[in-house]
C-alpha cells in the first residue's frame, strides 16, 4: 500500500520549533462555520481531524473547508500526511487495518465517520484518482463501465461511456479502440482513463493523489487542463509535490508540514496566489520559496 508515511523528519527551521502555534492559529480561523474567503459554499469540512496508524499520530488537529467547484491543492514536504488526510475524505484509509480517525469529516454537512455511514456509499460520492495510473486489465470500455455497473446504473451504458471519455478528453484517442486493453494506453492516457472511470459514477468530489507524478510534462499539462475543465462540475482536491503545479492549477492551497512529533498539521490555507506570493507564515514562505521540503 502506498501510504504517505513519514520517513525522515524535515529540516524545519529552528524558529518554527513551536509546532503547536500554527495549528492553533488555523483552528481559530476555521472555528466559525462560515463559507471560505470567497463566499463559496464548502463541500468538505474537516473539524479537528487527527489520523492515527496504530499509536502513531500521522496528522493532527486539522480544520479546513474545501469549497465547491474549485481546485484545492494540498502541498507540503514528504511524509507530512497529505495523502493520509486526502484518504480520510473518502474513507480509503479504512482499508488499513490499524488506521483510525478522530474528529469529524463533514461531506455536505454530514459526518462521513458517523455510525451507520457505509464507506462504500461514501466512495461513490467522493471519487479518487491515484498516483500511478491503475486501469483494470479490461477493455477501455469496461474500465469506464466498471463503476456504473457495480453501482447499478440503469441508463444507456454506451452513451455514459462516451460522455465520460469525452469529459476526460480521451474520446478522440480511444474511440476506435474501445475493445482494446486499458493497459495498452500510454501513461497519460491511462490516467485520463482513470479520471473518465471516476467521473462515470458522477461523484461530487474527485480526490487526486499526485496524479501526475508518474507522467511526462506533456501529459501533466493535459491533466491540468482537464482539471480546469472538470471544476465546472466537480470539486477537486489534489495532493501534489510539484509546487509549480499547485501554483498553476489550483484556486486554493493548503500547506501542511510536520512537527517534532512527526505528526503533520496544516500551517496555512488561502488563495493559491496569496500562499505563493504573500504567505502569512514563515514555514509556508520557506517551503514555497524552496528553502525546505
Amino acid at each position: 500500500m502506498t501510504l504517505d508515511m513519514p520517513d525522515a523528519p524535515p529540516a524545519v527551521p529552528a524558529e518554527s520549533a513551536d509546532g503547536q502555534a500554527p495549528a492553533i492559529r488555523i483552528t481559530a480561523l476555521a472555528r466559525e462555520p462560515r463559507p471560505d474567503a470567497l463566499g463559496a459554499e464548502p463541500v468538505i469540512e474537516l473539524r479537528d481531524v487527527s489520523c492515527y496508524y496504530g499509536s502513531f499520530r500521522a496528522v493532527r488537529n486539522v480544520d479546513i473547508s474545501v469549497a465547491r467547484q474549485r481546485i484545492t491543492a494540498l502541498i507540503g514536504p514528504s511524509g507530512c500526511g497529505k495523502s493520509t488526510l486526502l484518504r480520510t475524505m473518502n474513507r480509503m484509509n479504512d482499508l488499513v487495518p490499524s488506521y483510525r480517525t478522530e474528529g469529524r469529516v463533514l461531506f455536505d454537512g454530514q459526518d462521513l465517520f458517523a455510525p451507520g455511514v457505509d464507506p462504500v456509499a461514501v466512495r461513490r460520492r467522493v471519487g479518487m484518482v491515484f498516483q500511478k495510473p491503475n486501469p483494470f486489465p479490461k477493455s477501455v470500455y469496461d474500465n469506464v463501465a466498471f463503476g456504473p455497473r457495480i453501482n447499478g446504473y440503469k441508463g444507456n451504458m454506451d452513451e455514459l461511456v462516451e460522455r465520460s471519455l469525452r469529459r476526460a478528453a480521451l474520446w478522440d484517442d480511444v474511440k476506435d479502440k474501445l475493445k482494446q486493453s486499458g493497459m495498452a494506453l500510454s501513461g497519460g492516457q491511462q490516467q485520463r482513463l482513470c479520471i473518465a472511470r471516476t467521473i462515470a459514477i458522477e461523484p461530487e468530489v474527485i480526490l487526486m493523489d499526485e496524479p501526475c507524478s508518474a507522467l511526462d510534462p506533456r501529459s501533466t499539462l493535459q491533466i491540468e487542463e482537464l482539471m480546469a475543465e472538470l471544476k465546472r462540475d466537480y470539486t477537486i482536491i489534489i495532493v501534489t509535490h510539484n509546487m509549480q503545479q499547485a501554483a498553476r492549477a489550483s484556486d486554493t492551497t493548503i500547506f501542511m508540514t510536520m512537527g517534532d512529533d512527526r505528526a503533520g498539521y496544516v500551517v496555512e490555507t488561502g488563495e493559491t496566489i496569496q500562499i505563493f506570493t504573500n504567505p502569512k507564515h514563515r514555514l509556508t514562505e520557506d517551503y514555497v520559496s524552496g528553502r525546505f521540503g
Binding site: 500500500m1 480509503m92 482499508l95 461513490r124 479518487m128 500511478k132 457495480i150
Partner: peptide, 15 residues
C-alpha cells in the same frame, strides 16, 4: 494482483 487494483475498485464504490 497489484494492490492498486483493489484500491481502484474500492474507489469506484465497490463492495
Amino acid at each position: 494482483v497489484p494492490h492498486a487494483q483493489r484500491e481502484g475498485a474500492y474507489a469506484l464504490g465497490a463492495s
